[in-house]
Design a protein around this nucleic acid. Structure first.
Lengths: 248, 248
DNA sequence: CGTATCTTTGATACGAATCAACTATCGTGG
DNA sequence: CCACGATAGTTGATTCGTATCAAAGATACG
């Protein structure tokens, strides 16, 4: 059961991303596609894919839509610790842990593939390139997490939001989700506030500052970055943490 | 070449930690010990084990001493993104990535084992339990990283420092590095400030607040937690992110 | 014993949170 | 199709937490 033609079908973003991590042979691609097509699922905005405390027994690949990982304190303070974008993987290998320490919620309508643990382990055992690519996914998400730590710990609000926008843009680009200098930003300002550790009010003012500086246009859930280099400078953005694949 | 007796020898902390992740058979233990003893090395305080931008080709296990991972912005602002404590692993699998996005520096004299990539891959291929344990190490360090994101993003200074102290204590406990309700804290207040995203001055005042609340004693690089439950409450600490191993 | 590093204290400034409205947008049902 | 409530975005006023600046003690160190 092949997907339509050469565009990669429903899993195009996944293939693009994997190829950026490790070049896939036709055989690799076919094996991955097969596993994906066995477990296609959908979720609606606000729906939890994983809830803190769950045990999990599968790996999920996001075909389309945005999700976020988040943790909440007893008194309700919430922090989004990462976004999960098309082509990215939720918690590969995480079935090895007893329980999950955070929740994953769909921000938009989401299509994803659910690959059961046993199936996933077969795939990894049979195909070394895919195993390495999945491992890189895990390592990359750690690298992003580290960058978020310095973002929250050492960048001021203006830089922080600028940095988040640079990162999202650079993560969406390799999966073909940017159009010129624009990309979708299908989350509310409250979500952005919870991702940047700011209050909604201050986030709103910071975005207005970014607009006033002529760095971005944000309207109708679409982010346009007028001058990416200028935005990166403002954010002290250094992209090396995202481009971590080892050229063969 | 066995280590001395039943105490695990120089690598005692490593074995304790691995056993907490995955119970090791005698055979597992022997294989791991063998690999460790082949590559014993030392580093002094301030010495870099890994510098941002390096390519790496080995995995390191910390036998004794503290290190920290850190990232620095162009203008010198520094963020410690994690501590690496005895028994823990630096970047297992990270040789898959092209370059490393952060530096690792010794905070104290450190003894560690350097296992070359090829050797490490042999070990993983030959021993599934060890492979899973190393994978868990990677996943756990991600979980800690996520917790640090919420710590920096949503906890106030007092809670934040309290949380860090709870976490360090709970990470040192399973490797036998706590003594009653005390543990070593062999880092400067500047390091703690860079780990919590605070200024040194404010960190100092926060520690004094914690002392005044009777929650901790911190003197001569020794942290004593008078009432761990009270400290956890103050920090809104929930330990589940550290206890992630799946009972067999 | 003198110097560098680390810790502590005080005074002041500023960035971001909070509180309270108000406006705009979106979805939905009458 | 419009009215309505709910959700999202925006604005102003004020408070508070934390940074910054400056300097004094304390401690470690060669």
């Amino acid at each position: 059961m092949r997907a339509h033609g050469t565009d990669g079908g429903v899993a195009q973003a996944v293939f693009r991303r994997f190829n950026a991590l490790r070049p896939l042979s036709d055989e690799d691609t076919a094996a991955l596609e097969h596993a994906i097509l066995e477990g296609l699922l959908r979720a609606g905005p606000g729906e939890d894919l994983i809830t803190e405390g769950d045990r999990i027994d599968s790996v999920r690949l996001v075909l389309s839509g945005w999700l976020f990982r988040h943790k909440t304190l007893e008194d309700g303070r919430r922090q989004i610790v990462n976004f999960i974008l098309p082509g990215e993987t939720c918690d590969s290998h995480a079935y090895l842990l007893s329980t999950i320490d955070h929740s994953i919620t769909a921000a938009t309508p989401v299509a994803y593939a659910d690959i059961k643990r046993v199936r996933f382990e077969q795939l990894m055992a049979a195909n070394r390139t895919l195993a390495e690519a999945f491992m890189c996914e895990t390592l990359l998400s750690s690298a992003i997490q580290r960058e978020w730590v310095i973002n929250l710990g050492r960048r001021a609000a203006f830089e922080r939001v600028a940095h988040l926008f640079c990162e999202i843009f650079e993560r969406l680009r390799p999966v073909g989700m940017v159009d010129g200098n624009s990309c979708a930003l299908p989350v509310t300002q409250m979500d952005l506030a919870d991702a940047t550790g700011l209050s909604v009010v201050h986030l709103n003012r910071t975005i207005q500052e970014l607009r006033a500086s002529g760095l971005i246009v944000l309207k109708d859930r679409t982010l346009t970055i007028s001058d990416l280099e200028a935005l990166k400078n403002a954010a002290m953005y250094s992209p090396n943490y995202l481009q971590l694949y080892r050229a063969k």
